[in-house]
Design a binder for these strands. Structure first.
Lengths: 117, 117
DNA sequence: TAGTCATATCTGATTTAAAGGATATATTAA
DNA sequence: TTAATATATCCTTTAAATCAGATATGACTA
C-alpha cells in the first residue's frame, strides 16, 4: 500500500477479500440477501419488505449483481432476483455465531461507530 | 438507520453483522489478522511486516481489540497481540473460496471501486 | 532522574460510500 | 402511440473511515 508501485499477487488478493467483506458491510444489502434466501423476489417486493426507497434498493441490487452474488430473471414487467451462491448464507451464519460470543465487545466497538445501543 | 426511532431486535442484529464485516473490510486489518494467525506478534514486528506506519497499525489493532477479535499480553516493553477466536480464519477462508469462483465478477465490481486491475 | 524505546492517542485532511431526489429506460396494456 | 408500471442510473450532498503526522503515555535502562 502507501506507494508501492507493483502490488504483489497477495496484496491484490487481500484487496479482493476486503472488497468482498465490504459488500456484506451494509445493512440494506445484508437484509436483501436474507430476503432472497427465502426465495427469489422482484424489486417491488424488496422495496415493500425493506421499507427503503426503490432507487436505493436498485442500487444495492446492482452492487450485489455486479459482484456475482445474485442473479436476475426477467418475467414480463418484473425482474426477479435470486441468490446464486448459497455459501453467502454460510458466511453470514458464521459471522453471527462468532458475534454471538462476543456481542458485547462488538457493541462497544468505538472505532467504527460511537452510538449504537 | 435513517430515522427509524424504534429499531427492532432484528435490525440491531443486522447492524452488528454489518459492523462485523466492516472490520474485515480493510486490507491492513486482514493482513494483521493473517500475520497473527501465524502466531502472536508485538506491534513493532507487525509494523515491519506490514510496511505501514506504526500509528496506523496501532489504530487498526485498537479496532480489532475493542471488537474482541484479538487479545493482548504485555511482556516488558512489548505488547503481544494474538487471535482470540480462530473462527475468524474460517471466515476469511470461506470468503476466499467463494471469491475464487467468481473472482472475475468481483474484480469488475464497479460499485465499490473503479480501478483495481 | 534522565533518556530511550514501544505503543497509543489526537487532530486535521483526504477519500469513499451511502443517502436523497430527479430522471431515464424498458415493458406492458389500452 | 400514449399511458402506466417496474427498474435503473445520474448528480449532489453528507457522513464516515482511512490516512498522515505530531504528540503523549508508559515501561525499561543507565
Amino acid at each position: 500500500m502507501t506507494t508501492i508501485t507493483t502490488a504483489t499477487t497477495y496484496e491484490l488478493e487481500v484487496d479482493l477479500v476486503t472488497r468482498f467483506f465490504q459488500v456484506l458491510a451494509d445493512p440494506t444489502r445484508v437484509r436483501i440477501i436474507e430476503l432472497l434466501l427465502e426465495g427469489e423476489k422482484n424489486v417491488s417486493e424488496l422495496v415493500q419488505r425493506l421499507g427503503v426507497p426503490q432507487a436505493r434498493v436498485s442500487s444495492h441490487l446492482g452492487c450485489l449483481r455486479w459482484c456475482g452474488y445474485i442473479g436476475t430473471r426477467r418475467e414480463g414487467k418484473f425482474i426477479y432476483y435470486r441468490i446464486t451462491d448459497r455459501r453467502v448464507s454460510e458466511l453470514i451464519d458464521l459471522a453471527r455465531t462468532v458475534m454471538a460470543d462476543n456481542a458485547e465487545a462488538v457493541k462497544s466497538c468505538l472505532r467504527l461507530n460511537e452510538e449504537i445501543s
